[in-house]
Amino acid sequence: MKLIDPRLSIIEKRLENIKRIIPVASGKGGVGKSTVSALLALLLKEKNYKVGLLDLDLYGPSLHIFLNNSHSFPKEEYGLIPVNINNIDFMSIIYFTQNKPLIMRGKELTDTLIEIFTITRWNPLDFLFIDMPPGMGEILLDLIRLINRLEFLIVTNSTRIAMETVEKLINFLKEQKIPILGLIENMKIGDQDFVREKCNSLGIPYIGNISFYDNLENYYGNYNEIINSPISKEISQIVNFFA
């Protein structure tokens, strides 16, 4: 008999108390997937939803910067319980790497993803937002292979350069019949409707846009300031899409 990986059978069970699993993806890097994931988590938590955040950008994890937390460690209890940061349950590879470079090839990315899902015991959640890496490689493919109730949220910026790749991701997901909730246009500049029109032609909902904020970094870790900031007010309509 071929050797069998016992971890695969447990992944769905680990996620059974999570109502909605939403990968935040783009295909393209630098468009604000982490920021959008963190803002949605924070603002939905403010509406009394139970929210989790999982950083699957294994080469470049960054959610911990937004949450201002990298020195905690998940609690050991028949596996690992995510770190609770301001009532958001958070898991990241950062807790195992001491913020040093983690280089990996092919199957090792797959194994890391499987291991994280195997050992993480999420509390019951209304939403789990998964901050996805750029690209359409192992993490995207394995997530789709292993979890059958994903609802993708697509993020882009206002540029044709980003949209060129984002469109490929959307077409791939559509072809695979993976649900797409819609698209958020982040760091919107100007008043052109290029992205909205693109959504119409691709047949996916344009959920809304978020302006470019040059002082966003001042808010990292300052939850109350974020909640009372113009950005929160601007995206309340986007948050209501999920609420």
Binding site: I4, P6, S9, I10, K13, E76, Y78, G79, I119, R121
Partner: peptide, 18 residues
């Protein structure tokens, strides 16, 4: 205690194989 998480996977999988 990580062993428990892996053991759960082994039991689940062994039951399916059986």
């Amino acid at each position: 205690m990580h062993e428990w998480a892996l053991a759960e996977g082994v039991v689940n999988t062994a039951l399916k194989i059986a």
